[in-house]
Simulated scan of single mutants.
Amino acid sequence: MALTEEVDTTRQYEIPEGVLLEFRLAGPLVRASAWAIDAAIRAVLYIVIGLSFSYFGGVGVAIILIALFLIEWFYPVLFEVKNGATPGKKAMGIWVIHDNGTPVTVSASVIRNLLRAVDFMPVMYGFGLLSMLFNREFKRLGDLAAGTLVVYRDNYEERSELPSRTAERPGVELTESEQQAVLAFAERASGLSSERRVELAEILSEISGHNGERAVDGIYGYANWLIKGR
Rank of each mutant, 00 (worst) to 15 (best):
G88C: 05
G88V: 05
A91P: 01
A91F: 10
A91N: 02
M92L: 14
G93E: 07
W95A: 01
W95F: 09
V96P: 00
H98V: 01
H98S: 10
N100S: 03
N100V: 00
N100D: 12
N100F: 00
T102P: 01
P103R: 03
T105F: 00
S107G: 12
S107N: 13
A108G: 04
A108H: 01
I111Y: 00
R112C: 10
N113R: 05
L115R: 02
R116N: 09
A117N: 10
D119M: 07
F120P: 04
V123K: 06
V123Q: 07
Y125N: 13
Y125S: 08
G126P: 01
F127A: 14
G128P: 05
G128K: 04
L130H: 07
S131V: 00
S131C: 13
M132E: 05
M132Y: 05
M132H: 02
M132A: 02
F134M: 14
F134E: 12
R136G: 10
E137V: 04
E137L: 09
E137W: 07
F138Y: 13
K139T: 01
L141T: 09
G142Q: 07
G142P: 07
A145V: 11
A145Y: 10
G147A: 04
V150A: 02
V150W: 00
V150S: 03
Y152M: 06
Y152V: 01
R153M: 09
N155S: 13
Y156M: 14
E157K: 11
R159C: 10
R159K: 15
R159F: 11
E161M: 09
P163L: 02
